[in-house]
Design a protein around this nucleic acid. Structure first.
Length: 491
RNA sequence: CGGGGUGUAGCGCAGUCCGGUUAGCGCAUCUGGUUUGGGACCAGAGGGUCGCAAGUUCGAAUCUUGCUACCCCGACCA
């Protein structure tokens, strides 16, 4: 087989880059740091969107849309928020171009300078809370549960397709509540929605927890997150949910009249997942033959490849393929029949493996005689021959099995790469040799976390919310600690 | 943003050091034929402002300067 991918063992990041491009998911664009998401990649994103959107609606949220541009002054209203984002904001300063004086090309018209510069949103808390001020007067207006699907811009120095790009697509939920308790409950509810989505659809096990102060979202009192382990032993933050307290309510003066007739500041949350999930999906499951997609997110779940010598044979195979397609479609299974003459079957086999199609059917003259079909699984790369009787039922079952198998494989990998470590030398050695999640004691101080980061490049990925009480000593300082936190090197 | 590398046909590359016919090769594409159970074969054809812009020169893919994009390593971040 012709080699199209760099192998994981040879160069993991090159493997990732090759895969994104060769599987037709995305490519770099003419704009620095920005990607073009190609149709095949975008259709995976659309599947993610559809499912998440459904889950948001089920939990009572409605979609809305807020502007891309945010007046600069809004940004400075919440001090820690501006600190967090100031270094990576794109700013619009002018609103007009003109023909260049020398007659060549165009230039920014210096006379068209904006009175107030506009920040291209890196996130929308400020524009949304300035709006919520007008929407909220009474406790009867609460809770306010809004989500928006949008693009945001963070001017990153170093970008990688899907994992970190200057512009990316995401959803951001922004909710307003009457009480602290209710807001915390919302924050926790949504991180659980993300975890459920990651596990059931991405087939990717995640750990849930809260961020340390260092890693917390700028402007939040508490940041909950889900973290997944990639095949190279690095962690990937895959979703965050923030309890914002009353910080934004105070910054934008959003108050409500409670049942007792008193003015109170509103309690806030925000939560988001992005096209980074595409990166997670790729790095969680794929192999040296290409993408491995969980059936629930695969744009094509079943592909049928005909194998024939004569045109007459092809006709017979096509009849059979059409029958199968009809049955599969009735079950809501997406299926493609690739009868193109351009490529030989072998080429097609490799191509659909590269693209991660979960099941491939091959039908040839032998199958016509025996009323069978050759079924190849992408997750195990195994082939078997199945009867065409009830093939739709068999394949539906197989898709579910593949979904489960992919999850179990990822779970096994994560468990095998999660270590309890109590010795700092061993901690460092583990990071260098194997990576993975390291459960270790930490004294709870910022200073210790920063020292560890400096010396090992590992950060606290999360503090588990359900960690058992366990007396121990901080791996770095030796001070007392009562639960283990999760360390890892991360993306 | 710092250090290093790369940019020549859709893709992968040679040519650049040491300037000089008409800029090559493989894959892909198109045409015709033979093929088809794991990336087929033969024959022919099309496709290039050599990343962009200046400069040096009789002459630039090749030398000089600036810019730009991508890749790798750092710092920063989802």
């Amino acid at each position: 087989m012709a080699k199209v991918l760099t192998s994981r063992e040879e160069n993991y990041s090159q493997w990732y880059n090759d895969l994104v491009v060769k599987a037709d998911l995305a490519e770099n664009s003419a704009v620095r740091g920005c990607m073009v998401i190609k149709p095949y990649g975008y259709s995976i994103w659309e599947k993610m969107q559809a499912q998440l959107d459904k889950m948001f609606k089920e939990t009572g949220h409605s979609n809305a849309y807020f502007p891309l541009f945010i007046p600069k002054s809004f940004f400075s209203k919440e001090a820690s928020h501006v600190d967090g984002f100031a270094k990576e904001c794109a700013v619009v300063t002018h609103y007009r171009l003109r023909n260049a004086a020398n007659g060549k090309g165009i230039e920014v018209d210096p006379d068209a300078k904006l009175e107030e510069e506009l920040v291209v949103r890196p996130t929308s808390e400020t524009i949304i809370w300035s709006t919520y001020k007008n929407w909220i007067q009474s406790y009867r207006d609460l809770p306010l549960l809004i989500n928006q699907w949008a693009n945001v811009v963070r001017w990153e120095m170093r970008t990688r397709l899907f994992l970190r790009t200057a512009e990316f697509l995401w959803q951001e939920g922004h909710t307003a509540h009457a009480t602290r308790e209710e807001a915390i409950e919302e924050t926790e509810k949504m991180i659980k929605v993300y975890a459920e989505f990651a596990e059931d659809f991405l087939a990717m096990p995640v750990k849930i927890g809260v961020k340390s102060e260092n890693e917390r979202f700028a402007g939040a009192l508490e940041t909950y997150c889900i973290e997944a382990l990639m095949q190279d032993g690095k962690a990937l933050q895959s979703g965050t949910s923030h309890f914002l307290g009353q910080n934004f309510a105070k910054a934008f003066d959003v108050k409500f009249l409670n049942k007792e007739g008193k003015q109170e500041y509103v309690w806030a949350t925000s939560w988001g997942v992005s096209t980074r999930l595409m990166g997670a999906l790729i790095m969680a499951h794929s192999d040296n033959n290409g993408l491995v997609l969980p059936p629930k997110l695969a744009p094509i779940q079943v592909v049928i490849v005909p194998i024939h010598k004569s045109a007459e044979q092809l006709n017979q195979i096509s009849d059979k393929a059409n029958e199968i397609m009809k049955q599969l479609k009735q079950r809501g299974i997406s299926v493609k029949y690739d009868n193109s003459e351009n490529q030989k079957p072998g080429w097609k086999f490799a191509e659909y493996e590269l693209k991660g199609v979960p099941i491939r059917l091959a039908i040839g003259p032998r199958d016509l005689e025996n009323n069978t079909v050759e079924v190849a699984r992408r997750d195990t790369l195994t082939k078997s021959v199945m009867s065409l009787d009830n093939i739709d039922q068999s394949l539906e079952t197989l898709l579910a099995e593949i979904q489960e198998n992919i999850y179990n494989k990822a779970l096994k990998f994560r468990d095998e790469n999660t270590y309890q470590i109590d010795d700092y030398q061993e901690f460092k050695k583990c990071l260098d040799d194997r990576g993975g999640f390291i459960l270790a004691h930490w004294d709870g101080t910022k200073e210790t976390e920063e020292k560890i980061k400096e010396e090992t490049k590992a950060t606290i990925r999360l503090i588990p919310i359900d960690a058992p009480y366990e007396e121990g000593k901080c791996i770095y300082s030796g001070k007392p600690s009562y639960k283990r936190v999760v360390f890892a090197r991360s993306y």
